[in-house]
């Protein structure tokens, strides 16, 4: 915009360049002698620019933008898929957990019932066994007592015979001793 003579130069230098670079007093944009050159070069450079832009620049930059768009869309789709997958996995996990819980409860109930039944049966057999043992023991006690009682009679008869012998010096008759012991035991 500002030319060599337009800045803060010395007046002499300014005048020199002014004289050298004069434009013949005309207004440069309306100097028709320059039109042909400008048009020719404008045509050459603008066509060159158009070719560069349409064949190289726009496909390249547009491709980069599109690639980014696709990448972003692809990533979003992938993220959505992964999210759906994780949602499904969570749902499956929760379902599994619920079914496992109910199954565990069922198994617990079943095993508890089974254990109760088994315990009842065992207790019953045990009680029966105990009752049988008790009956046996009572029988033994009764037998033992009967034996003991008969032994006691023999011992008592012997003792009575001995005592009579010691006191009288006469061996008593076994029958009378026995009768006396029986009478005393009854008595």
């Amino acid at each position: 915009m500002a030319e060599s003579h337009g800045g803060a130069k010395s007046p002499a230098a300014g005048a020199h360049t002014e004289a050298e670079g004069g434009h013949g007093g005309g207004f440069p944009p309306f100097e028709s002698s320059t039109y042909a050159s400008q048009l020719v070069w404008l045509a050459i450079f603008f066509v060159a620019l158009y070719v560069i832009v349409s064949k190289l620049a726009l496909p390249k930059v547009g491709g980069a933008i599109e690639a980014r768009q696709n990448k972003i869309e692809g990533d979003l789709t992938e993220a959505q898929t992964l999210r759906d997958q994780s949602d499904a996995a969570l749902k499956a996990y929760e379902g599994e957990l619920a079914s496992a819980r109910s199954r565990a409860q069922a198994i617990g109930n079943e095993s508890r019932d089974k254990a109760n039944a088994q315990a009842d049966a065992e207790r019953k057999t045990l009680e029966e066994q105990l009752a049988a043992k008790l009956a046996g023991a009572e029988k033994t006690i009764a037998a033992t007592r009967a034996t003991a009682m008969s032994n006691v009679r023999g011992i008592a008869a012997d003792a009575a015979g001995q005592i009579v012998q010691q006191l009288t010096g006469v061996v008593p008759d076994a029958g009378s001793v026995n009768a006396a012991v029986d009478a005393s035991l009854k008595g």
């Binding site: 002698s33 320059t34 039109y35 042909a36 050159s37 400008q38 070069w41 603008f46 620049a57």
Partner: peptide
């Protein structure tokens, strides 16, 4: 008509070059 490479042509070339560098 005289066809010359002028300062105007030079700046057209500069503009095309800058755009090409920027875009390519």
């Amino acid at each position: 008509h005289t066809i010359a490479f002028t300062n105007s042509s030079l700046y057209m070339l500069v503009a095309v070059a800058i755009i090409s560098i920027l875009m390519l």
